[in-house]
Computed example of a mutant assay.
Amino acid sequence: MVRETKFAASVIIPTYNRQEMLYQNLQSLKASAISKDDFEIIVVDDGSSDNTLDVVRNFTDSCQIRYVYQQDSGYRAGRARNLGIELSEGAVCILLDCGIVVSQGFVQAHIDAHAKPNSVVLGYLYGFSNTDDHAEELDAAVAEMNLADVDRTIDKLRETGRFPDLREATYAACADNMSALPVPWSIAWSGNISVRRDRLGDRFRFDENYRTWGAEDIDFSLTLFESGAQFSICRDACGIHLPHSKSHEVNSRSSRPNKIYLHSKFKRPETELLIDIQSWELNAHLMRQAANVA
């Protein structure tokens, strides 16, 4: 059953043993231009053993914030996000990873982007990539940042073109018109995305069968796409993806079985291609195919 709407938005943040990043994330949300009474924050802890709860307690007086804990039972990001959605009381559900600091206008931009009730809105993530190639440079930029004024750092990144979102080439190819993309769902990841809660209803949730990293957010977005959702990019709903260790090779190994499972569910030509093509490269691949046929 869909809960009563008390807020303009609910920011849903799954986390696991990332207390420092979560603190930075919440500090940036605390500085939001929108009134704290107009949005809520739901932190869903997927079984952390660090001081995550103490971090959340630091913000109980300054934010409308709730903490939910689920026992550590392996990777359950999908279940964590579903818990947040089920508890949410905002008109718009904003799914946000804890390793992201956001602009002061982030929450309001997501809300404003939902003039159409059938929208799935992708926020922009500076510093978001699949490798650690520029981690040291990004670390240096972040080290100088004031969490109460993330906008100043974002303005510099925007002006200089440094550390663009991994999906920037795709956005440029469609001139930010995601309806022109053959598979917009392939880049609609859950790190910074929003959907109206009445659009989600009781039907649309993350598939909790994904128990390792990869593809569960694509599954979620593809399900919405097949129901007629319209995808859009909102550059003002922006943040900075904090640098942290990652391995493209490890992630690829983890995601491949998940992509096979994804294809077994949807059985689309595009989901079959996705098994061997990176999700952020799939639109370009399909557009090249279409151009060659033409």
Rank of each mutant, 00 (worst) to 15 (best):
T170G: 05
N25V: 00
L157D: 07
I275W: 03
D176Y: 14
F206V: 05
D139Q: 13
V195Q: 11
V56T: 11
G78S: 14
G47C: 11
Y210W: 05
I277K: 09
C174W: 04
V2I: 14
S252I: 00
L138P: 09
S10A: 15
N51W: 04
S73G: 12
G239S: 06
D37H: 14
S194Q: 10
R253V: 01
G84E: 07
S279Q: 08
T153I: 04
N283K: 02
S88M: 08
N209C: 07
L157M: 15
G84Q: 04
A77Q: 12
Q289W: 02
C93G: 02
L26S: 08
N51H: 13
L53M: 12
I260D: 01
E208L: 05
H241A: 06
T131L: 08
R167M: 10
R18Y: 06
C63Q: 15
P164Q: 13
T5G: 02
V68M: 10
D236N: 10
S10D: 11
V107Y: 02
A9M: 04
A143N: 13
A172N: 12
K116V: 09
R211A: 05
E208D: 11
G105V: 01
H263N: 12
V55C: 10
E137Q: 15
G239P: 07
F220T: 02
R18N: 08
T212G: 00
S28L: 11
H241M: 14
G123H: 08
Q70Y: 01
C98L: 01
T60I: 15
L83G: 00
V2M: 14
R66P: 00
Q278Y: 08
M21N: 12
I260K: 11
M21E: 09
K116S: 13
F128S: 13
S28N: 09
G105F: 01
H244R: 13
G74Q: 08
G239N: 02
R196S: 10
A215P: 00
L22Y: 09
F7A: 08
K36V: 14
R66L: 05
R18A: 10
G161P: 07
W280K: 02
L122M: 15
E270G: 02
I260H: 01
V120Y: 05
L26N: 06
G99R: 07
C238V: 14
H263D: 11
H241I: 04
S227L: 01
G74D: 10
S255F: 01
E249P: 00
W213N: 06
K156D: 10
S279T: 09
I34W: 01
C98P: 02
D132R: 12
